[in-house]
Every structure is written in structure tokens, then in C-alpha cells.
Amino acid sequence: MKLKQISVFVENKPGSVGYPCKVLADAGINITTLTLADTKDFGILRIISKNWQEAYDVLKARKFAVSVNDVVALEVENTPGGLSRVLEALERQGLNVEYMYASVFGVHNRAVLIFRFDDTDSAVEKLAGCPDLKIVDSELFFSLK
């Protein structure tokens, strides 16, 4: 039900995002989706890849400040109000969203959003019992095109 996300700490300067991407490319690792969070001084490149373990190892070996954590992918209706219905459902469950971003690929004409919760395990538990929300598991997620 959860997806593994790789986070790479980068400086906010030219080339700093390109380099880790190049390292993954050279290792033949495909990035399924990604997002870049940035501040004035630094950024965090968050990557979701089917080969996350390999991605982590190859980045670690190149001395990147890299970490792995769990995120959850949720289906969101591709119509006005789709996202706000999901967010309201999360709020009813008392789930706090640390950050979220959209996946490059959708499923069944619906969008897929990646969510980072405080406590992913308890979030997944609550989401599973919530009929308004549909989790995209990793098998389905990595089959999306």
C-alpha cells in the first residue's frame, strides 16, 4: 500500500539537480515521478522509482545526502472538486499532510497524488477503512503509463 520515496539533499545552484539524475541515468534506473522542493539555500529532490533500493545504493555510494521514506499514492478524480473531496476526507480522518505532489501518470482517467503523512503506517490503516479514498498500490503504480 505504501511507496518508497528517495530524497536527495541538493544545493540551490545550477547543476545540483542534474547530477543525481545523471547518476541514476547512468545506472539505468528509471524515475517514475519526482518533485523538487526548494528554499533560498537548498532543495530536496524527491524521487519515486521502482528500483528504489538500487537508486538509494548508487546515490549513497556517490556520497549524496540521501534517505528513504514511505509515501502513499491516492487516486483523485480529474474533475473540479476532486482534490478537495480527498483533502476533506483526510481531514475527517485527522491525517496531517506534510507535503504532496502529483504523479506524472494517472489511472483510469483519474489523477494520482503522492502524500507524505506524519505517520505513514497509521495513515494507511485509516485510509484503508475509508470508502471515499482509493490507495494506488505499488504494483498498479509502477504499471501506469
Binding site: 520515496q5 530524497s7 539533499f9 522542493a37 528554499t39 537548498f42 530536496i44 524527491r46 549513497k60 549524496f64 545526502a65 540521501v66 534517505s67 521514506n69 506534510e98 507535503y99 507524505r116
Partner: peptide, 11 residues
């Protein structure tokens, strides 16, 4: 700094 961060807040 060493790794272990995915949140801007933590950084």
C-alpha cells in the same frame, strides 16, 4: 550534513 531528510521543515 549527512542524509536522512525528506522534509524541508526538518532541514
Amino acid at each position: 550534513i549527512s542524509g536522512g531528510f525528506d522534509k524541508i521543515k526538518t532541514l
